[in-house]
Simulated scan of single mutants.
Amino acid sequence: MREVCHTVSVRAAQLCAAGLAAVVEKMRENRGLDRLSVTVGVDGTLYKLHPHFSRCVQRTLRDLAPNCTVKFMPSEDGSGKGAALVAAVACRTTGPGQ
């Protein structure tokens, strides 16, 4: 049971990272950049509480989009709107892609 749960968790993190990698790579290409730095707001119990999920997402993202630096900004308000708000505020206070 433990192996099955581990396998499903890793695969879920990899699929999440694959979608995100496609988006950030497309952003980088559209902007004509060699490197892209971007902040992504995240929300959800799985990302916050699973012992390995966030690390697996980050590792897979680095492998799939090596020319993109993605900083994750967790939301603390417990709603889906919070992640978008955190990302918007972070970009406004530190500048885009910081």
Rank of each mutant, 00 (worst) to 15 (best):
S37Y: 03
S37D: 12
V38I: 15
V38W: 00
V38G: 07
T39P: 00
T39F: 03
V40L: 01
V40D: 09
V40Q: 11
G41P: 02
G41S: 02
G41R: 06
V42T: 15
V42C: 12
V42G: 04
V42Q: 05
T45M: 05
T45L: 07
T45G: 02
T45Q: 11
L46C: 08
K48F: 08
K48G: 00
L49C: 13
H50P: 05
H50M: 04
H50Y: 03
H50A: 06
P51K: 13
P51T: 07
P51D: 11
H52C: 03
F53M: 03
S54Q: 14
C56W: 12
V57Y: 11
V57C: 13
Q58C: 03
R59W: 12
T60Y: 02
T60P: 07
L61V: 01
L61S: 01
L61D: 01
R62D: 04
R62W: 02
R62V: 05
L64T: 09
A65L: 03
A65H: 05
A65W: 04
A65F: 03
P66G: 10
N67A: 14
C68D: 02
T69N: 12
T69F: 06
V70S: 05
K71V: 11
K71N: 13
K71Y: 06
F72Y: 09
M73R: 10
M73S: 15
P74V: 02
D77S: 10
D77T: 10
G78R: 07
G78P: 06
G78H: 06
